[in-house]
Design a binder for these strands. Structure first.
Lengths: 221, 221
DNA sequence: GTGACCTCTCAGCGGATTCTCAGCGGTTTG
DNA sequence: CAAACCGCTGAGAATCCGCTGAGAGGTCAC
């Protein structure tokens, strides 16, 4: 749940917990994006008015990163545009404040159910696996420790395994959307990753598509 | 189970039996109330559309009689009011027809677990154990005394054992959701904890995941 | 009021991490 | 064939992050 009004956040938090949900709470947009990128949730409750990044922006960033967790937006406004905006950006439902707690619970249950075939919490490519919740990477049963940046890059590649992704896309999603430094960082970090996940195993999961970008081999290389 | 559509009743009956449930089947509201009053069930599956007494009415009567057996309602409708009505009346969950059989089984298991024999109150990780009800922590049979804050931190880590939890999450859940001080407190308290639960036993249950947060080793370190 | 205990802040240290840079070698283009 | 391009690589500088010891302020029991 992403909500900056403390009283409301606290009430809803307690209520949802009592209703049997396991709730994680963040209070601003930046942490929301971070948390949603690093963990896997059944559903996200997202306020529109937030410090740092507003709800629309958070949703936009998440979808751009290929994160399709169902999102229920909370809005104080009730204009027609607000709703359609939210739906356009990929929100799955919305509620207008003040809302009934029972309605919130019912909607959340509906979203979770609709989500259908559960998402894999563990991304795999051949004998390479990445457990998103535990933040663990293994190859051939052996655990591999990665730095945050290396992990971010690998997760991105694995979420797009089989696709060729450009360095620009990588920079925008693993670094900062406004990254302005040398794109060579990507090459450097690809190298770091290869040293950890490919070289010791005599494989090459990360392929270079010259002039295009990189591609993670779905079979692990 | 209370269900008047014979084909559906039969299918679900067989399926639940196969899944290991002992199922009793009645076909209308009056028999439902009678059966629930005379017997004790782990959980009641209740259709809304029923002859003689509809599902809402059945639920209302049961609750009025002090019968708090968990109830999962089945509904063909999907309107907001139907859902909230069901929750208002004391239903513990609901499913909209058509529903997935696996989902039904999962929800029933959840209801039985939630209402029935109490959850395990003792969290363990290797030889480290935390008794939630008694606020007692032991390692290797020796009791360890913790301050409230230390205890809160350890309980949080143990509830998420195996997962990597960030300092932000820890602050939001162990401190205050609105905590605004120095996140360094977490490091300080991790240190206090380690001094009490790890150092004396030459173990390290609490692992640092640099750049990410902390992780409690499920095996105790 | 005094001492014990608890919570939290602060600043410095040292290692880990991130990023830049410049040179190399292979590939494509004109 | 030469020039431009592109990705790879090793080295190193700057920054970040977690760890730690000291201590200030608050609370509680006596």
């Amino acid at each position: 749940m992403v909500e900056d009004e403390l009283r409301l956040a606290d009430t809803v938090h307690r209520g949802l917990t009592d209703a049997g949900f396991v709730v994680e709470l963040v209070h601003d947009g930046e942490n929301a994006v971070w948390a949603a990128t690093e963990h896997t949730y059944d559903v996200i409750v997202l306020d529109i008015m937030l410090p740092k990044l507003n709800g629309y922006r958070v949703l936009e960033l998440l979808r751009a990163r290929g994160i399709w967790t169902p999102v229920l937006m909370l809005t104080a406004k009730d204009g027609e545009y607000d709703q359609t905006d939210a739906f356009d950006l990929g929100a799955d439902d919305y509620l207008t404040k003040p809302f009934s707690f029972l309605v919130l619970v019912a909607r959340l249950r509906a979203l979770i159910r609709r989500g259908g075939p559960e998402r894999p919490v563990v991304l795999t490519a051949g004998d390479l696996s990445l457990d998103v919740a535990r933040r663990r990477v293994e190859r051939n049963g052996r655990e591999i420790t990665l730095t945050p940046r290396e992990y971010g890059l690998l997760e991105f590649l694995m979420r797009h395994r089989g696709d060729t992704v450009s360095k620009t896309e990588i920079l925008a999603n693993v670094w900062d959307p406004a990254f302005e430094g040398d794109p060579n960082v990507v090459e450097v970090y690809v190298r770091y990753l290869r040293k950890k996940i490919d070289t010791p195993f005599a494989r090459h999961a990360i392929e270079t598509i010259r002039g295009m970008g990189y591609r993670l081999n779905p079979e692990g290389g």
